[in-house]
């Protein structure tokens, strides 16, 4: 009998020790998630709290399914994500490789590189909104003064240019995330394979392609996971620069969700949108983690 209790106690001990963590997770993650999911099944309006008690099943989701504007924003967000992540990765890689070569002033450069990340996204939005202003903005004025163009480029109005301008601002602000993580990868890289490659007569491109790049790819996938979650929630810069316009040309998921949830005060409907949009984040995170595991396996690392 005593033995039975002792065994049971031993079995419960890990659970007991883990309980603070489990309770914290429950209160911080699970309950808010369940609550917000429940609100997505109601016509909950922030300004009329009693509406949270009206259960309407999946009506908000059915509406979403038929909402062309939502799906346009959904696909546009994917496009935005793919372009921004690739450009940030390529630029970040270039910067990391260049800084890795520097032997003097590297620390100062690393600090300078982080400057754009220190600005609030709202300030970055305002800065680029005025840079790309068609009439008094610096870009058009410079191009016109140099005689390159004799018309005003509608940076924030034309569908492609407006997306370009927003991606430009996003890339300007966040490329350093990639650069700093890839630089960490380069610092951690063992010298032996590089020296072996040199002895074997590999040229610089071959060394980079077959040794350096595979080694830093796990770092790149971690950066991509972090940034994909960030970019999928892009809001401040877009809100300030175009607010999703003109005519929905730059509407992304979170400008739409924030407008529905806060300005229109329809939090139930906004939560339904947010839940559908999390599919996107889950898909990207799953994709990058799969790539991360594959990259590590390729390098002979632990899975």
């Amino acid at each position: 009998m005593t033995r039975f209790f002792r065994t049971r106690q031993a079995a419960l001990t890990p659970l007991l020790l883990l309980s603070p963590a489990i309770l914290t997770m429950l209160f911080v993650v699970a309950i808010p998630l369940v609550f917000s999911f429940y609100t997505s099944l109601t016509p909950y309006r922030l300004t009329r709290p009693e509406t949270i008690e009206t259960f309407i099943g999946f009506r908000n989701y059915v509406r979403l399914w038929e909402d062309a504007a939502f799906w346009a924003a959904f696909w546009r967000t994917i496009l935005f994500l793919v372009i921004a992540l690739n450009v940030e990765f390529l630029l970040g890689l270039g910067i990391a490789l260049l800084i890795n070569k520097i032997t003097w002033g590297q620390r100062t450069l690393r600090t300078i590189m982080m400057f754009p990340m220190m600005f609030s996204p709202i300030l970055v939005g305002f800065q680029f909104k005025f840079i790309f202003n068609d009439n008094i903005g610096i870009v058009n004025n410079a191009l016109q003064s140099m005689g390159i163009i004799d018309f005003a480029i509608p940076w924030l109005v034309d569908a492609r240019l407006a997306m370009f301008s927003i991606i430009f601002a996003e890339v300007w602000m966040s490329t350093s995330v990639f650069a700093i993580l890839l630089l960490a990868g380069l610092f951690a890289m063992p010298r032996d394979p590089l020296e072996a490659a040199k002895v074997d007569g590999c040229n610089a491109w071959q060394t980079f392609r077959h040794i350096t790049l595979p080694f830093i790819m796990p770092f790149a996938f971690i950066a991509m996971t972090i940034r994909s979650l960030d970019v999928a929630r892009a809001y401040d810069i877009v809100q300030v620069m175009t607010d999703g316009g003109p005519a929905g040309r730059t509407e992304l998921l979170w400008t739409l969700i924030a407008r529905v949830g806060y300005e229109n005060a329809r939090m139930g409907q906004a939560n339904a949108m947010a839940y559908v949009s999390t599919i996107l984040s889950i898909a990207f995170t799953y994709f990058f983690f799969t790539k991360l595991v594959a990259a590590r396996r390729y390098m002979g690392g632990a899975e």
Partner: peptide, 12 residues
């Protein structure tokens, strides 16, 4: 009017 007006607010 300037070609960017669809994006203008009061400060612009």
């Amino acid at each position: 009017v300037p070609v960017g007006v669809p994006n203008y607010l009061w400060d612009d």
